[in-house]
Write a protein that binds this DNA or RNA. Structure first.
Length: 428
DNA sequence: TCTGGGGTCCTAGGACCC
DNA sequence: TCTGGGGTCCTAGGACCC
């Protein structure tokens, strides 16, 4: 049996821990650049604030009902996430916890007898809440997909379920599948939903009863087959042990459109530094670097797809002479790529740096600059240690610049309560 | 006027090899 | 006039997730 433990309105919950006056009032958290709504409390949901909707559209509603407004504070959420996951590991054992995203973990419950499942799930819920202040919902079932389904039910019927739903019998699973629209299943997105509905498949139960061979032909091949197996209670998606990322990226919208090459270069250098840091944190090196920029050219884009919000993406990549994790070795090619992509007179909305061809750092072949490299490696470690302990980028490369014309908007940001001494929560 | 920022897995099709 | 059959590796793009 698997549990999925999912934090309720995670970003909102994190903000409320440090500002309890918002506990019973509607709150929302905005994406970078204060662009759209990426977390909303139940109260905000009830007011009709749309998830992932643009802030400017929800603004009248937000102002009318005095909804609490927060810019995203990833330093805080990252740290709170660690606390939640550590609590789960403490209760279930390190190896039985698979962190799935910043606010969700799967927990393997094979060590529990059937009649202890609910009790243990409740213990997970209560302990996380007591130790971190973050409320969670728990779904338990024989497969990951069904556990996600159970979790959806726990969240939807919070009061009846006390945020914990266990589907341990065929009967309960069937009932849950019958009341769940197929589009709500884990792994069924908008495209597949439409396709399934057109074929007269509307509920999870309808899909569960389709033949596997049909899924192989009509539902994304092996992906569809796995989904149906999982719905029937056959494990097809197993616990994932930790693996290094195969691609690491930093991409951002600019606060305002940017036209100067100097600004683009500065942004690309900063993103490269941030990406290299992520790379070193998992002890990897990258063999390829890809830089892209997005303009705001509008012509003809809307006609093709009315949802197009920005212009075309221009991208280019360089295969590095040898894999590296050093910021200085990555910034040079990144800047060269930015220069190559830049066109005078265009307006740029966004840029990004993507590292791939990722290998373990200790597997890097020795090269002529071995000695120089080890010095560089030492330097990188020092910079990382300083930056990590300060949870910001205190030490920067000169090419990252200091003006930051392109920096994003964050008008409602809260302090980094848990990662900066001088931003600690004060109790008066 | 104003619409995140990451990731993963899979498939199809081209290039190339024997 | 007649023109195989496998196999691998790579890339682009689709679909999905949070």
């Amino acid at each position: 049996m698997y549990a999925i433990v999912d934090c309720n309105s995670f970003y909102c919950s994190c903000e409320r821990v440090f500002q309890p006056k918002w506990d019973d009032r509607p709150v929302v958290v905005l994406s970078n650049n204060d662009g759209c709504i990426i977390s909303r409390s139940d109260e905000a949901k009830d007011l009709g604030v749309e998830m992932a909707g643009p802030y400017f559209i929800a603004k009248p509603l937000i102002e009318k009902y005095n909804v609490g407004l927060f810019s995203s504070n990833y330093n805080l959420y990252g740290d709170m996430s660690m606390r939640v996951m550590d609590t789960l590991r403490h209760l279930a054992g390190d190896r039985n916890v698979e962190v799935y995203s910043v606010d969700e973990s799967f927990v393997n419950l094979f060590f529990l007898p059937q009649n202890k499942l609910r009790e243990f799930a409740m213990e997970l819920r209560h302990t996380v809440e007591r130790w971190t202040g973050v409320a969670v919902s728990v779904g338990v079932a024989p497969t990951k997909t069904l556990a996600k389904l159970a979790n959806g039910i726990a969240k939807k019927y919070k009061r009846q379920t006390e945020c914990v739903a266990v589907l341990e019998t065929g009967e309960k699973i069937a009932k849950a599948l019958r009341i769940t629209p197929v589009g709500k299943l884990w792994g069924v997105g908008g495209r597949s939903q439409k396709k399934l509905n057109d074929l007269g498949i509307h509920t999870g139960w309808d899909l569960r009863n389709m033949p596997e061979e049909w899924a192989r032909k009509n539902l994304g091949g092996v992906v569809g087959v796995r989904l149906i197996k999982e719905l029937r209670g056959e494990e097809a998606i197993v616990m994932d042990t930790y693996e290094d990322k195969k691609m690491i990226a930093t991409t951002r919208m600019f606060g305002n459109a940017v036209t100067a090459l100097a600004d683009i270069k500065e942004a690309v250098a900063t993103y490269t530094a941030r990406t290299a840091e992520k790379l070193r944190r998992q002890n990897s090196a990258a063999g390829m670097i890809n830089v892209f920029v997005v303009t705001n050219e509008k012509e003809n884009r809307k006609a093709v797809n009315p949802h197009f919000r920005h212009g075309p993406t221009y991208s280019s990549h360089i295969v590095l002479p040898y894999p590296t994790s050093q910021t200085n070795e990555l910034i040079k090619p990144a800047i060269a790529l930015a220069e190559k992509l830049y066109r005078e007179g265009k307006q740029y909305k966004k840029a990004g740096v993507v590292l791939s061809g990722i290998v373990p750092d200790d597997a890097i072949q020795a090269n002529m600059f071995e000695q120089q490299k080890s010095i560089g490696r030492f330097l990188m470690e020092q910079i990382d240690n300083i930056n990590f302990s300060m949870r910001g980028d205190v030490v920067k490369f000169a090419s990252s610049g200091t003006k930051r014309n392109w920096k994003m908007r964050q008008d409602f940001q809260t302090p980094r309560y848990t990662t900066r001494w001088n931003e600690l929560c004060k109790v008066s």
